[in-house]
C-alpha cells in the first residue's frame, strides 16, 4: 500500500441527457483504489455502480456523458485523455469483466481469435507467442485442457467457463486495474464461489487492483478490502470492509445489511428498506435517501456533506448512527 493510488476518482459526474430530462446517474463520486486492493462497489439497481465502471473506461454510450470530475489513473486524468490514449489503456492497463458471460464473447469468433487479438492490439508480438500466452491465461483461470479449448467457439462453453474465458482475457495484458461489473451475478452459486476464490487469488498474486461492482453484500464480504456503498448516484458510505459491515453508520447501509435474510430471526417477517429507489429524474431534495429513512429530520432537506464520524470512514449523512452500532 504505497503513496499514489492506482485509481483516484474525484467528484465524478455522469449524466444521461434523455428527452425526459437529465438523469444524474453519477453525481459526485469519490473513491480511491490502491495497488492490490479489491474495492466492493455496492448498491441497488440504478444506483450508478455500473455506470461508474464504464465512466472510468470512457465507455459510456450516448445519451450518457461524463460531465465532471477527475479519474486519476496513476496520476493521469483519463477524462482528459484522447481516444487513442484510452484505446491504449483499455484492455492493457485497465480491463473490464462484464456481467453476462453469455453476451460478452463474440459468438462467431473462436476463443483463440478473441484472445490473441487482445494481446496484439497492445503489443507487437507474433501470433505464436500471443497464442501461448492466451493458452497459459486459460490454464490460469482453471479451464481444463486449455489447448483444445482455444479452438472452441463461445457457445461450446458453459456460462461459468465463459466467464472464466472473459476473466482470462481481462488478465492477458497484466493490467493494473480490473473493473468487474457483477461478473458472478448470472452464475450458479457454486461457480460463483470458485470464481470469487480464483479472482481473489489472482489479484493477490499479481498485485492487480480491482473494483468489484455488485449488489450482493455476501460476495463483497468475502472478497473485498474496502467498500463503497452507492445510492442514487452518490457514495453514501465508504470504508474498510469489516468496519463497514460490522458497524454500518449510514442508515441506508444499515437497511441494506438488515435486508440480508440471514440477519433476521427465523419465523419473523423479513426486513426490507421501505419505499423504492427514487427515479433519477425526480430526486428528492437534499439527501436522496431521506424519504425512505427512519431517522430523517428537517436537516435532511439540505444537501449533505461528507463527514468522518468514525476514523477512516466517509459518510454522507447528517444522522450517522454511530451510537447504535458501537
Amino acid at each position: 500500500m504505497t503513496d499514489t493510488p492506482i485509481l483516484d476518482v474525484q467528484g465524478l459526474e455522469t449524466h444521461f441527457f434523455t428527452k425526459d430530462g437529465v438523469a444524474k446517474a453519477i453525481d459526485g463520486v469519490n473513491f480511491t483504489v490502491r495497488k492490490g486492493e479489491i474495492m466492493g462497489l455496492v448498491g441497488e439497481s440504478g444506483s450508478g455502480k455500473s455506470v461508474t465502471g464504464f465512466s472510468i473506461l470512457g465507455l459510456v454510450d450516448p445519451p450518457g456523458k461524463v460531465v465532471g470530475g477527475k479519474v486519476l489513473f496513476k496520476g493521469e486524468d483519463l477524462l482528459q485523455a484522447d481516444d487513442k490514449r484510452m484505446q491504449e489503456l483499455r484492455g492493457a492497463r485497465i480491463s473490464m469483466i462484464f456481467q453476462d458471460p453469455m453476451m460478452t464473447l463474440n459468438p462467431v469468433l473462436r476463443v483463440d481469435t478473441q484472445m490473441i487479438e487482445t494481446i496484439q492490439a497492445h503489443e507487437k508480438v507474433d501470433k505464436q507467442t500471443a497464442w501461448q500466452r492466451s493458452r497459459d491465461a486459460l490454464a490460469q483461470v482453471g479451464i481444463p485442457s486449455p489447448e483444445e479449448r482455444m479452438r472452441a467457439y463461445p457457445h461450446q462453453f458453459s456460462g461459468g467457463m465463459r466467464q472464466r474465458v472473459a476473466i482470462a482475457i481481462a488478465l492477458l495484458n497484466k493490467p493494473d486495474l480490473i473493473i468487474a461489473d457483477e461478473p458472478t451475478t448470472a452464475l450458479d452459486v457454486t461457480i460463483q464461489g470458485q470464481i470469487l476464490y480464483e479472482t481473489q487469488k489472482l489479484c493477490r498474486e499479481t498485485g492487480t487492483a480491482m473494483i468489484w461492482v455488485t449488489h450482493d453484500l455476501a460476495v463483497v464480504a468475502g472478497l473485498a478490502d474496502s467498500i463503497s456503498v452507492m445510492y442514487a448516484g452518490r457514495v453514501v458510505e465508504q470504508g474498510n470492509i469489516n468496519d463497514v459491515l460490522d458497524n454500518p453508520v449510514h442508515p441506508y447501509t444499515l437497511g441494506l445489511l438488515g435486508s440480508v435474510p440471514g440477519h433476521n430471526t427465523r419465523g419473523q417477517r423479513l426486513y426490507q428498506v421501505p419505499g423504492m429507489a427514487p427515479s433519477l429524474f425526480k430526486l428528492p431534495k437534499g439527501c436522496a435517501f431521506q424519504p425512505r429513512c427512519g431517522y430523517a429530520t428537517e436537516a435532511c432537506q439540505q444537501d449533505q456533506t461528507v463527514t468522518e464520524p468514525v476514523p477512516g470512514r466517509a459518510v454522507r449523512c447528517c444522522h450517522p448512527q454511530v451510537e447504535v452500532s458501537s
Binding site: 473506461l57 465507455l59 454510450d61 484505446q87 491504449e88 489503456l89 483499455r90 484492455g91 492493457a92 480491463s95 473490464m96 462484464f98 453476462d100 453476451m103 460478452t104 464473447l105 463474440n106 459468438p107 469468433l109 487479438e117 487482445t118 492490439a121 497492445h122 472473459a166 482475457i169
Partner: peptide
Amino acid sequence: EYIKFARAKGLSQNRIIFV
C-alpha cells in the same frame, strides 16, 4: 455486449467494425 467488450479490450475501431 460483445462489441462493448471488444472496445473494453482496447481493440481498434477498424478491427471492431471489420471483424
